[in-house]
Simulated assay, not measured.
Amino acid sequence: MDVSYEGTKRELVTDEGVLRYHVAGAEDAPPLLLLHGSGPGVSGWRNYRGNLGVFAEHYRCYILEFPGFGVSDPTEGHPVLAAGSAVTGFMDALGIASAAMVGNSMGGIVAVNLAIHAPARVSRLITIGGVGPHVLSPDPSEGRRLLHDFVADPSKENLARWLRAMVYDTDVVTEQLIEERWEAARDPDSLEAARVMYGAESFALQQQSLLRSGRPPYWAMMHKVSCPTMLTWGLDDRMSPPDMGMASMRLIPDAELRVFPKCGHWVMIEAKTAFERSVLEFLQR
């Protein structure tokens, strides 16, 4: 199916601002939500524009732009929490009781949290890296340390260094991609989201807040995820190394893990055809 940015974009006005999204696929097809990751210049469209046409042949696909990343209006609170509220509000507004979800990195964490706390909303779950605890790899990872560097000095050079760490094949990171992401990364809302999530001081404060609250981290509650789950990972992921996937596969009761060789953090881009085939097979069982 042919899709375009202008042909698929929509807006939803809420009490907390405008949520922007893309939709494609037959209106009576089962719903599939595509939830994007974090990082400078990110958007749902940039994450999934290459996959939308394939998935829309089988599903009513929704790419939701999370608040505070320069596309949808910003809201109060931590970006991950704001994203979770945005997903449930979006589903309620569009009359979607339950949906399969694909979540890239932060989007996977958002979907896992929904599957834990609102299990009826998530029928099946596919994550792309980013979910779970570090077991053998250092934390913060190389990719996260490069994000710290970008937040401390938001330059095009630091952005390019981080982008190249997201992939196995650095030819994927073209000058056009760098320029596109740099233009978006300079947006004040995008910079603020990056600072809150990846600034060294903010990261330390988040860790202290979690310890003081006495609440377990989300991954310690992943045994409560009851829906069928497929964890997808790039073998050469330098943002969230694949040992995290091994832990998540053990923690989630009905989970399987698929690891793609010669692939970094952006599985849906670097392993596009194999990823799409795996997702469709998993969803259509």
Rank of each mutant, 00 (worst) to 15 (best):
L12G: 01
P242W: 02
E281K: 15
D189V: 06
V151T: 07
E192P: 01
G245A: 04
V167A: 02
L94T: 08
R212I: 12
V71I: 14
H223M: 04
I128C: 07
L211N: 13
A99W: 03
S85D: 15
L191N: 00
M166H: 09
R46Q: 15
P79R: 02
K9A: 08
P216Q: 11
S72R: 03
M268E: 15
S202H: 02
E142N: 10
E276Y: 07
P253F: 03
P30K: 13
R10G: 02
A193P: 00
G41L: 09
S240R: 01
T232P: 01
G53R: 08
S43C: 12
V122L: 01
F282S: 05
A26D: 14
V167T: 05
G214S: 04
G68E: 10
K156C: 04
T170Q: 11
S155H: 03
R164H: 03
W266F: 14
R161V: 00
V13P: 11
A200D: 12
E65V: 06
D153P: 08
P30Y: 07
A56G: 09
P79M: 05
F282H: 03
A24P: 15
D237W: 02
F203P: 06
G214V: 05
G68K: 12
L35S: 01
R212L: 12
F150S: 04
